[in-house]
């Protein structure tokens, strides 16, 4: 990478570094470490309050309102959430392919398959769309819960569930915006191997958000 980083729009560090690593990558890993504590605080609260709600609806149990006699079914929709989980998992695959495509941008491509795999715009689009689809599933889930009678104010489960998954959703939203920004850069001037780091740090963030969902899916949805 000679001094021709001129058209890199993001700040580029080309000073001496102790470990030979780019500072932005060090920072994003430190940030991810910090996010572990953030999500553990949210997850702890969800688990602490699990089974402590006084009124329903509940995640896995039916509940009859003693006042009205209305029966609330278990509220979590496992099939729908399994689908959205699968979408998010696939987005991680698209993300690594986007990174690989940017890293190998300048390598000659001979076969059709190599050209498809080397298309950074395609994989960035796929990742961002998968993220947006996940958010769509979440919006559907939230509205149907509210429709069924569970809001963020209803009980301890509602407060901790919406806050935990909402925080995750906010992270996915930020990730989608980040990916769209990268796409815009790719369309404007093309992302090349010298921009790998820009995509790499976005990818680390994206995978981390996926990893958090892996934990949430098991702890919140599957374990009763």
């Amino acid at each position: 990478m000679p001094a021709s980083v001129a058209h890199t729009s993001a700040p580029t560090s080309h000073h001496y570094t102790t470990l030979g690593l780019d500072s932005r990558k060090v920072a994003i890993w430190a940030f991810i470490g910090s996010e572990c504590m953030l999500f553990v605080s949210l997850i702890s609260t969800y688990l602490i309050y699990k089974g402590r709600s006084i009124v329903g609806p509940f995640p896995h149990e039916t509940w009859t309102d003693p006042a009205t006699g209305h029966v609330f079914k278990p509220i979590l929709n496992i099939p729908v959430t399994s689908a959205s989980t699968f979408v998010l998992l696939m987005s991680s695959l698209f993300m690594v392919l986007a990174l690989a495509a940017v890293q190998n941008k300048e390598k000659p491509k001979h076969t059709r398959g190599e050209r498809v795999l080397g298309n950074s715009k395609l994989w960035l689009w796929m990742t961002a769309s998968a993220g947006a689809t996940f958010l769509g599933f979440q919006a559907f889930e939230f509205t149907s819960f509210v429709h069924e009678g569970l809001s963020i104010r209803t009980n301890l489960f509602g407060s901790s569930f919406f806050t935990l998954t909402g925080f995750h959703g906010a992270h996915v939203t930020a990730g989608v915006i980040w990916l769209v920004t990268l796409l815009a850069i790719d369309y404007r001037r093309g992302l090349g191997s010298k921009d790998s780091l820009l995509v790499d740090i976005a990818a680390l963030y994206w995978h981390f958000v996926d990893v958090i969902w892996i934990v949430i899916f098991t702890l919140v949805y599957l374990i009763k």
Binding site: M1, S13, G20, D22, L197, D200
Partner: peptide, 9 residues
């Protein structure tokens, strides 16, 4: 990506 790192040294 690797060579970008190397050049930073």
């Amino acid at each position: 990506m690797m060579d970008s790192h190397a050049s930073m040294t």
